[in-house]
């Protein structure tokens, strides 16, 4: 063979990142399964997914947080767009947006001293205790990722029994 061989780099290396997308879909049965199926069939990872109705009742919004590299994320967006029931895919990652998540943390709280300490932590962070059990407290917090992570870390030493979180919702800022 008489051609030169200067290899072009056909597959660049990408780093894994977290991406946030907001997807408007038809509010019909089966749509969530289509979206979830798309991720599982192609081996993409969903970090969180939150769904709810929008201002227009025939349209739902899904806020999806995806763990992916840039190349896979491009495919995720294109594949989501390709679904017939997808009306719009909005990538929030690059721009300015506000995001919130709601979390319940059930934390072990048996001894009096410990119970007091937890109450203090909760007060100082602005979170709220929504259930006082004999052996545990349930703490509610809403906020962005940092805020929620901070609270989890503060409570972890006392023994976290259960965590329930909604997944992130996000909205683009007006500017």
């Amino acid at each position: 063979m008489n051609y030169e061989h200067k290899t072009m780099n056909r597959n660049k290396e990408f780093n894994m990142e977290k991406f946030v997308i907001s997807v408007l879909v038809e509010n019909k049965f089966g749509v969530l399964a289509r979206v979830a199926g798309l991720f599982s069939a192609r081996g993409y990872n969903i970090n969180s997914l939150a769904v709810g109705e929008t201002e227009a009742p025939e349209v739902s919004r899904m806020t999806i947080v995806v763990d992916a590299d840039e190349r896979i994320f491009e495919q995720v967006k294109k594949q989501l767009n390709k679904l017939i029931d997808t009306i719009r895919v909005q990538d929030l990652t690059g721009g300015e947006y506000v995001d919130r998540e709601l979390i319940f943390i059930k934390v072990k709280a048996e001894k009096i001293g410990i119970r007091e300490k937890i109450v203090k932590i909760v007060d100082s962070t602005g979170a709220e205790i929504v259930d006082i059990g004999k052996k545990s407290f349930t703490v509610e917090e809403s906020g962005d990722e940092h805020r929620i992570k901070a609270l989890i870390e503060l409570l972890r030493p006392y023994g976290i029994l259960e965590i329930v979180r909604t997944g992130k919702i996000a909205i683009q800022c007006d500017n």
Binding site: E4, T7, M8, N11, E74, Q75, K78
Partner: peptide, 26 residues
């Protein structure tokens, strides 16, 4: 093997399906 496909070429891709573009090859 994709990393040795058309090693000397720039690539033009005409396709109706955006998800086909840059899926396997930049």
């Amino acid at each position: 093997r994709i990393d040795d496909f058309a090693p000397n070429a720039s690539i033009v891709h005409i396709d109706i399906d955006p998800s086909s573009v840059s899926k396997n090859v930049e």
